[in-house]
């Protein structure tokens, strides 16, 4: 697997991500991986020392990671948030809206297709974890 696709300006974090259990049991880890069934809120007391959260997508159909990402961003987490696993190119725009800014798909992603997908929608109906202003806000200020 190559380097993750990153939408961040900072340098990639080089510490390997540890499991949630391992993370909660040790005080110095700065990178953690959460499985799709694990509760992202368990990380909230520790956000100030985390530089990377990797969220696992064991199957593209398993959408729990989208909620995990939003929960972390809503709590103010500003570090790298990576989607890893069965991540399809057509899902990345939705994941970006949920706050993911780093991607490690198991199968390679066609960068031209991805660029077109990310540029496709000028407007979004609902507020999410990205800076997009929802359409109702554009309508009414």
């Amino acid at each position: 697997m190559g380097d993750p696709l990153r939408f961040r300006a900072d340098e990639p974090h080089d510490e390997p991500a540890v499991t949630l259990d391992a993370f909660l049991g040790q005080s110095n880890a700065t990178a953690v991986r959460i499985e799709s069934g694990e509760d992202a809120r368990a990380l909230l007391p520790h956000l100030d020392r985390i530089a990377l959260v990797e969220v696992s997508f064991p199957k593209f159909r398993d959408g729990r990671g989208y909620s995990s990402a939003r929960i972390l961003r809503e709590a103010g987490y500003a570090g790298e948030l990576r989607a890893q696993g069965d991540v399809l190119v057509d899902q990345i725009p939705l994941m970006r809206r949920c706050g993911f800014d780093s991607f490690a798909p198991e199968a390679p992603v066609d960068e031209a297709v991805l660029a077109a997908a990310l540029a496709r929608y000028d407007h979004h109906y609902q507020r999410a974890a990205d800076p997009a202003v929802p359409v109702w806000k554009l309508r009414h200020g």
């Binding site: 159909r61 959408g63 989208y66 725009p93 809206r97 109906y125 609902q126 359409v135």
Partner: peptide
């Protein structure tokens, strides 16, 4: 309809 259209969090529900 508007809120649910392309809702980024709820497009891969169970």
């Amino acid at each position: 309809r508007q809120w649910s259209s392309f809702h980024p969090e709820f497009s891969y529900l169970p």
